[in-house]
Amino acid sequence: MSTGATIAATVERFVRETVAPFERDPRRASHGPSDALVQELRGLAREAGVLTPHILADGSHLSHRDTAMVLQAAGLSPLGPLAVNVMAPDEGNMYLLGKVADPEQRRRFLDPLVSGEARSAFFMTEPAADGGAGSDPSMMLTTARADGNHWVIDGRKAFITGADGASVGIVMAKTPEGASLFLVDLPDPAVRIERVLDTIDSSMPGGHAVIAIDGLRVPADQMLGNPGDGFKLAQVRLAPARLTHCMRWLGSCRRANEIATDYACRRHAFGKPLVDHEGVGFMLAENLIDLKQAELMIDWCADVLDSGSLGTVESSMAKVAVSEALMRIADRCVQVMGGTGVTGDTIVEQVFREVRAFRIYDGPTEVHKWSLAKKVKRDWKATQA
């Protein structure tokens, strides 16, 4: 077996045998599992040798193709990515810092994330009510001005995953040279949580917060790259992060389909098992098709990223195809299980909620389609020259 397959098999055993029993733990709340639960799970992962399994001892990352196997295994439980430290936004932030941070920045901000001792947040999206940046980052309103050997940041951010309880922040703000990224120690009195939003998903510690940033002073050596590099550096993170979302939630949908299949094969109605009724059996058959198509789409895009390409177009295509396929799968699982499917008796209803939110995260389906349509037009124009 490949390195990725070997690690994935170990992670899968750990998630199924050790993590899954915690799915009924009362420390899981509407704004995500408590940090106490996360640290307990990470302690177990550390003992089992599966903590941060996608980053090797020498600091190198698994290939994107191998990462796909590992993150799908972690996603078999909503708590799995948290336990083994491959959850969003930390996984994407670790990837970015590993690629672009200088040695001192890696020591201060990356190492605590890799060890599982700290959580992080990526501060980019802004409140719609302010007219700030959402799917269009060029609308950025948060500003950073130079003041001696510091930058001073002011603005508001929204939907910031994990900000409540994070120790490491990556903040995007507009400088005279353009958008820039800053590493921030948290908590800081200049970074205030206005509120944690009530959302349909509940798998990420700290939930999703609206943030006010008022006079945040950041040393100049905590800028990532150079002034104006923000969009370029964000692209290093965004394409792989879109794909790792696909990987984790593919694992979740595999588990939901297992639960729905077990239910359909055990539950009898009208004289036979539910699975023998065409309307139910066909839904499970369609799930198998969508699961395989999602897996192949992920592997295709992972190969593109492993070739050294930024994979911007390919990750948009994968994000749309996989998120829509997973939504169909999760919806069918609920439908197959009837009333049980909408209760908290299994993780199926949570998977449905998480995947519904995924259709928005990292760019709504419609934004990616719009971007791809612009490429279609550009490519057509190129043929007319």
Rank of each mutant, 00 (worst) to 15 (best):
A209N: 07
P205G: 06
L216K: 09
H208T: 06
K232D: 12
Q222I: 05
I200H: 01
V196C: 03
D198P: 01
D201H: 08
K232E: 13
S203L: 08
L224N: 14
G215R: 15
I200A: 07
T199Q: 01
D214V: 14
I200M: 10
Q222P: 03
G206Y: 02
G228D: 15
I211F: 01
P219W: 04
Q235S: 05
L233C: 10
I200N: 06
R195Y: 06
H208M: 10
H208L: 03
V196A: 04
Q222T: 06
G215T: 12
G206F: 01
A212F: 03
D229H: 13
G206H: 02
I213N: 12
V210Q: 07
T199H: 00
M204W: 00
K232I: 12
Q222A: 06
K232H: 12
A212S: 10
N226P: 05
M223E: 12
A234T: 08
A220H: 07
K232R: 11
Q235E: 06
A212I: 03
R195C: 08
D229C: 05
D198A: 04
V218A: 12
D214F: 13
I213E: 10
G228T: 14
I200T: 06
D198M: 00
K232C: 07
V196L: 01
A212R: 14
V196M: 04
A234F: 10
F231T: 10
I200P: 00
I200V: 04
F231E: 04
M223D: 06
F231Y: 06
A209S: 11
S203N: 06
G206N: 04
D198R: 02
D198V: 02
V210C: 04
R217L: 07
L224M: 13
R195E: 09
R217W: 05
Q222H: 10
N226T: 14
P227M: 14
L197C: 02
A220K: 09
K232T: 12
G228E: 15
G225F: 11
D201T: 04
G230Y: 10
K232V: 13
N226Y: 12
A209R: 01
V210A: 02
L216N: 12
P205H: 01
A220Y: 10
P219C: 12
S202E: 07
V196T: 06
V218M: 11
M204S: 01
D221T: 03
I200L: 06
M223I: 13
P227A: 15
R217M: 08
G207T: 09
G230V: 08
P227I: 11
P227H: 15
D229F: 09
M223Y: 09
A209V: 05
A209F: 04
G207D: 04
D221N: 07
T199C: 00
V210P: 03
I213Q: 14
D198K: 04
P227Q: 15
G225K: 14
D214S: 15
G230I: 07
G215Q: 11
I211K: 02
S203K: 02
G207P: 04
G228H: 13
N226V: 15
M204Q: 02
G228R: 14
N226M: 13
P227V: 13
H208I: 06
L197V: 07
S203R: 03
A220N: 06
A234G: 08
G230S: 13
S202Q: 03
V210S: 03
T199L: 03
L224G: 09
G225W: 10
